[in-house]
């Protein structure tokens, strides 16, 4: 790695803020909405995806000069599927309860657009070190996105956070939050929130340039 530290930091931060996979690029929606009924599920899904993302991007980047252009997508998918199989068996061995909670969505990491998108757009063009750091940033950004959804849905839908009860006995959970429509609503609200934030920033910028 001949990159200077700021550049590397930039690669890492890209996925967390400027190109956050969940909130900015709106990629990988299926696991985002399906598994985020609780904070624990969201966190484990995020970690599993990050693992696959980092290692497949690293391997693809190592092999980038060997893979013929015509069959690159197929090669990427086979590499990704290999790492997902590893994660699948690891989760099954570590915690069966978690495995049942996440269900088929662990195996569906294969078709998560974020991973293939990173492989195609980034890892196939950069050396392994940079590619892995960028992938790690993306993974962390994805995990943050999942947590943002999972915690909100758990707090409202079950009155707990990571399994710890937050409210008293009399709390009536909003069941709709842990049901499918809740996922759509919460993600929609987050996107609205970020859009409003962006709007405010632009207005302030415009005012600043006018005053100057």
């Amino acid at each position: 790695m001949s990159q200077s530290p700021p550049r590397t930091w930039d690669e890492f931060m890209e996925g967390i803020w400027r190109q956050n996979p969940v909130f900015v690029m709106v990629l990988g929606m299926c696991p985002t909405l399906a598994v985020t009924v609780s904070g624990v599920n969201a966190l484990s899904m995020g970690v599993a995806t990050t693992f696959v993302l980092v290692f497949s991007c690293g391997l693809i980047s190592l092999l980038r000069k060997l893979i013929p252009k015509e069959v690159r997508i197929a090669t990427y998918i086979v590499i990704i599927a290999t790492f997902v199989t590893v994660v699948d068996y690891v989760i099954q061995a570590v915690s069966l309860a978690l495995y049942d909670a996440l269900g088929a969505f662990i195996q569906l990491i294969v078709v998560n657009c974020i991973i293939l998108g990173r492989a195609e757009a980034h890892a196939s063009k950069t050396p392994p070190g940079v590619a892995m750091i960028n992938a790690l940033g993306m993974g962390v950004g994805f995990t943050i996105g999942l947590l943002a959804l999972g915690t909100v849905r758990e707090i409202f839908g079950a009155g707990t956070l990571f399994g710890v009860a937050l409210f008293g006995e009399s709390f009536q959970p909003w069941v709709v939050m842990v049901l499918p429509p809740g996922g759509f609503f919460v993600l929609g609200s987050w996107l609205l929130f970020f859009a409003a934030l962006e709007r405010r920033k632009q207005r302030k910028l415009a005012e600043a340039t006018q005053n100057a």
Partner: peptide, 21 residues
């Protein structure tokens, strides 16, 4: 205008999903 795009689509999907329940 702030709600246009993906946020709006997601809200719509939420309503459809509610109907399908």
């Amino acid at each position: 205008s702030v709600a246009q795009g993906t946020a709006l689509s997601l809200m719509l999907a939420g309503v459809l999903s509610l109907a399908f329940m």
